[in-house]
Simulated scan of single mutants.
Amino acid sequence: MNPTNPAGRSGPGLVPFLVISFVGAWVAMLPLWLEGLRRTSAGQGTPRLAALCMILMMLVPALTAFGLTARSRGPREAVRVLGLTRATPWRHEARSVAVALTIPPALTACGLALATPVGWYTPAHLPGPATIAPLVLSALVSVPLYFGEELGWQGYLLPRLLRHGRIRGLLIGGAVWGVWHVPMTALGGSYPGHPVLLGIPVAVVTATLLGTVIAAVRLSTGSVWAAVAAHLSLNEFALPLTGDVSARLVDPLLAGPLGVSTWPAGVLAVLVVWLGHRRRGAATGPSAPVAPPPSEVPASATERDRRPPGRASTRPLP
């Protein structure tokens, strides 16, 4: 891994992906801006138009990643290199997904433990089956949406950012994820009732921490599906459960997975990721340069990957 690579050498395909993904996000949310819709309270429901716009926005990264990869490698190869097919044994995939599902609720619980003594959160009861069952159903239905995001962020963007070094690449990816949400955040999507100039910076910091953890899950497990599970768990379990077990309306800026009270747990998680990387680096010696993203490896190099063990090969991810 070569952390000294200049930003301009992130590889072909990075700039088009970012431009299309960001423009696509704004286009998807444009109807809400034209309608003047804005979320002003945490208790406010989601209108159908807003739900549709958010669905379209979540699909933009995956469609962009698939289109750019298919253009250079063909549709069939794009399915493989972006992680649409299972890359590890199913038992490993299942364990990775199971672990990933627990991470956002664990970080949220740590944050709520800090928010409760200062009066930002008032727990009422533990969630029961009647509370959990609808969330599970919603999560199962929503899997394609989260895969739509993570296929772009973890399948396409992350390998290109790793050229700047593992930890730096993870942090940059998290920050990009936070800025990408601005069209929704500015409408009160994450922090209703708060000024835009406060909500956007808080959202970017939160996304940088959580996005770094999600990307680290993807690298440590080798599974894009684990990243999907972590993202799904964040939105479909950690967020709603925070409100469901509270005795009063929760301000998401203060408490919950997106609240500032969860930042210490997020910082600690990022520190654990960094220390783990340092330990592996000390044990194995200097890291090798990061291989080019799959969509940039020429066909001849792909053929070399199929040589017998002992021959050099190019791998898309460490």
Rank of each mutant, 00 (worst) to 15 (best):
I103L: 14
P195G: 12
H125S: 14
P127W: 12
S138D: 04
I172A: 15
V228I: 13
I172W: 02
S300T: 13
H125A: 15
A216V: 00
P289M: 05
V213F: 04
A124N: 03
R168V: 03
R279D: 05
G178S: 10
W177V: 00
G83S: 08
A7S: 10
P127C: 04
A109M: 10
S21D: 03
L209T: 14
T85H: 04
T221Q: 07
H194L: 11
L239P: 01
V23F: 12
P89D: 14
A78K: 01
L239Q: 14
W26Q: 11
L219H: 12
V272S: 09
A124Y: 02
D244E: 15
V273F: 01
L68R: 08
L198N: 09
S72T: 15
V273Y: 08
P75D: 06
L254S: 12
D305P: 00
G8F: 04
A62L: 03
P289I: 01
T314K: 00
T262F: 06
G128Q: 13
E77R: 10
L101N: 04
V213H: 08
Y121C: 13
L232C: 15
A227T: 07
L171V: 14
S96G: 14
F66I: 02
A130T: 08
W180E: 11
G281C: 07
G211T: 05
R307F: 00
E149G: 15
V213A: 13
L18F: 02
L145R: 14
G310D: 02
A227C: 09
M54Q: 14
P159N: 05
L157Y: 07
P61C: 08
A78Q: 02
Q44K: 10
R166V: 11
G222N: 04
S223Y: 01
E296H: 04
